[in-house]
Amino acid sequence: MTEQLADPSTDREAMPVELVDDTGVAIGACSVADAHRPPGTLHRAFSVLLFDRHGHVLVQQRAAVKTRFPLQWANTCCGHPAPGQPVLEAAAIRLREEFGLAAELTEVGTFRYRAGDETTGRVEHEYDHVLIGVVGDVTPRPDPAEVGAWAWISPQTLRAELADHPGRYTPWLAEVLEIADRAHTAHRA
């Protein structure tokens, strides 16, 4: 069975996102583009980090056409649920769209951050739900419009890379890694 790639005619910037208050309570909606205009509007997002059976994590280099932080390395996939859409449902859909993968996902934490992208002038201001999953020996089938490159890497090596070369990585990856790895390690113990 061949997975369907993301519809290239979909204007992801026009899709709605759910605006939230500082505690994550929904307070409205706007387009992706509007939420990411400076100074950025706090909205709901998710970040998925997949682990393999050896404890490595799947990271991606964001495609060059991304409107925020293009060509930087990030967690497995991320996105925004539509207003009122369950986070787990939205994340599972996005994981299939970006990587052609399915995994049982578990939410393991949330955090807020704000980060400006000097390259594009856009701003991330997100209430981010961190989700993890474990997959066996699978070969990702990334959509090239979403993913420039991908790699399996140990959390320890990724931490060292983040410390030595922070400009290569998205500003949210370090926090996603810490929340996800802590939960994954606790689950394995």
Rank of each mutant, 00 (worst) to 15 (best):
I132L: 07
E178F: 01
E126A: 11
R159F: 00
H165T: 13
E146M: 14
P144F: 07
P171H: 12
L158D: 02
D181Q: 10
R168P: 00
G148F: 07
I153M: 13
H129W: 11
R168H: 11
P155F: 05
A149F: 08
G136D: 15
Q156T: 13
E178V: 06
G167P: 00
I132T: 15
D128N: 15
H184C: 05
R141Q: 14
R159L: 06
D143G: 09
P142C: 06
E161C: 13
P144M: 08
W152S: 08
G167W: 00
H165W: 00
T119E: 13
P142W: 09
A151R: 15
P142A: 07
G167T: 09
H184Y: 10
T170I: 07
R182L: 06
V123P: 01
R141T: 12
A151V: 05
E124A: 14
A174W: 01
E175Q: 14
I153A: 07
S154M: 04
G136L: 06
H184M: 08
A180Y: 02
D117Y: 09
T119R: 15
E161M: 11
I179A: 02
V123M: 09
T120Q: 08
H184G: 02
Y169H: 14
R168K: 10
H125I: 03
V130D: 05
V134W: 09
G136F: 10
T120K: 10
S154A: 14
H125C: 13
H129L: 01
R114M: 12
V135Q: 08
R182E: 09
L158V: 04
V135C: 10
A183F: 04
L177Q: 03
V176P: 02
A174F: 02
Q156I: 10
T185Y: 02
E124D: 15
D117R: 11
W172C: 13
V123T: 15
E178H: 09
E175I: 06
E178P: 01
L158Y: 09
D143N: 13
R122K: 12
V134I: 12
P171E: 09
T170G: 03
L162W: 03
P140N: 07
D164Q: 14
I153H: 11
V135T: 14
D117P: 06
A163H: 10
G116C: 00
A180P: 02
P140C: 04
D137H: 12
L173W: 01
W150G: 00
T157P: 00
P144I: 05
D137G: 11
A115W: 10
G121W: 12
P155G: 08
A180F: 03
L131F: 12
T157L: 12
G148I: 04
A174C: 02
H129I: 01
Q156Y: 06
